[in-house]
Amino acid sequence: MHNTIVLVKKEFRSYFSTPLAYIFLVAFLVITQWLVMRGYFLRGQADLRSFFGLVPIIFILFIPAITMRLWAEERRQGTIEILMTSPVRDMEAVLGKFIGGWIFMGLAILFTFALPLVLKYTVAPEVGTDKGPIIGGYIGLFLMGGAYLAIGLFSSSLLDSQIAAWIIGTCICFALYMVGDPFGLFALPQALVPFFQYLSLSRHFENIARGVIDIRDIVYYFSVIFFFLFLNSCMIKSRK
């Protein structure tokens, strides 16, 4: 536990030791807010549905960019040798990196607070708004981002190239996002449809973003996170 906290602190701080974190935050915020705002006044609806539809897709590209460095660079520079020969369990190291990244991602999500504020002062006074989907949407984003993050962290542990880690991470995230898509499901045998829908990251997100916080969806996200963190620690162990 102590080790994990030490690593979380170090990982979170290391995002800000290079300009990368600031570039990431600015790029993420500019792109999402622009894409959301361009249709916002035309639609004239007091919800953030377009925002919550967009961010999970943007995250497919952005989250693996947060994590791609974490193990790949550690391996390329050899610093992993110092890390793994200090009295730290593999899982503690994995968790430290994951939680550090999760906090950073939470920060990125937090910075989109301007949108609900805009909503509150522009459209909402006229048509009235429902807070449930917004709160749910944010919780959903945080959980879904966590799942993406675990996937990205795992793919970073596969090779010692950051770019390869980013591409692999993006592909796995995309695949898990798309499996529940009706466009692909209609070609499948009927019996398999519920299974693929259950696997899909986006389906569970839709539930939460509707404002319905079901324990099953939360369990699902945490299982995905722990599954990939477990694979990650296996990869770290496999060096031996």
Binding site: S14, S17, Q77, T79, E81, I82, T85, S86, P87
Partner: peptide, 21 residues
Amino acid sequence: SLEVRRKIGYLPENTPLYMDM
């Protein structure tokens, strides 16, 4: 393993360090 690691100080080849720290 953990107890052993506590007793050892290790300097790997090429001195890998976090350059931005």
